[in-house]
């Protein structure tokens, strides 16, 4: 009974204040992504370690995607953006591309060493691999563009290609981080939080993918999807804040 009352309250508040909800939702995600990107960029500038750049880029693109999404949704809510127009198509393609490239950069931050092997061992190899790396990055961007275009032509309602690809990509990232986590004797706080963020991201994308099937029978479902997505970024930001603190405490 109480649960159903909460759900009714949530859904009413969501529907009645949709533009404000979208603003708060976008603000939280964009600010969290910006802070994460800034932190990794700072470490990249100091160390030139590419892993920082790739993970930072993932959050740069996620942040841009949700910023764009905000204008896209608000435009539709206020009637400025109508389906079938060129502007709508551009928003659709750009959002799909940005989310996809963000996910691809996230996975690449975990596997880049396999593709740019020598670059972590010497400056000479690093220079050589900088050229090779560029080719890999073009493939990632090309794949993201292809997914966005496929969705535009074959799945314009729900972007199923993007959601399915993201589920694969995030699922793969989760397996990699989980295997790292299991192989470590002392379970680091940052890694635990990262694993939670990836779990939530997977659940979030799955929930988004299933929206069309579940929302008609359980309307408040969409509110939970928003909540899960927000938690991914808050958890990730918390992880980024906690790592230096835990390291400092361990040293003391």
């Amino acid at each position: 009974m109480v649960f159903s009352e909460i759900n009714t309250f949530l859904l009413t508040a969501f529907n009645e204040n949709r533009p404000l909800v979208e603003l708060v939702y976008a603000l939280i995600i964009v600010l969290a992504s910006g802070a994460i990107f800034h932190k990794f960029l700072k470490y990249y500038r100091l160390s030139s370690y590419r892993g920082f750049r790739y993970l930072g880029n993932a959050f740069l693109f996620f942040g841009l995607a949700f910023l764009l999404r905000f204008f896209w949704i608000e435009g539709q809510l206020f009637g400025y953006l109508v389906e079938g127009t060129v502007l709508y198509a551009l928003f659709f393609l750009a959002f799909g591309y940005l989310v996809m490239i963000g996910g691809l950069y996230l996975v690449y931050s975990l596997i880049w060493k396999h593709f740019e092997k020598g670059s972590v061992t010497s400056p000479q190899c690093a220079r050589l691999h900088a050229k090779i790396k560029a080719t890999h990055i073009y493939y990632l961007h090309g794949f993201a563009v292809a997914i966005a275009v496929l969705d535009y032509f074959f799945s314009p309602e729900r972007q199923y290609f993007m959601f399915l690809s993201q589920l694969t990509v995030i699922g793969y990232a989760w397996l990699m981080v989980f295997s790292n986590y299991k192989s470590q004797k002392d379970h680091k706080t940052g890694m635990q939080l990262y694993l939670i963020a990836l779990t939530l991201a997977f659940v979030g994308f799955l929930a988004n993918f299933l929206t069309d099937f579940i929302q008609p029978i359980f309307p408040v479902y969409i509110v939970y999807v928003y909540f899960i997505t927000t938690m991914v970024f808050i958890d990730m930001l918390y992880a980024v804040i906690m790592v230096p603190k835990c390291q400092k405490n361990a040293k003391d």
């Binding site: 920082f52 993970l55 931050s109 975990l110 990699m176 940052g190 890694m191 990262y194 835990c246 390291q247």
Partner: peptide, 8 residues
């Protein structure tokens, strides 16, 4: 610490 925690 960041490299280890985030598997970078």
């Amino acid at each position: 610490s960041f490299i280890e925690n985030f598997g970078l």
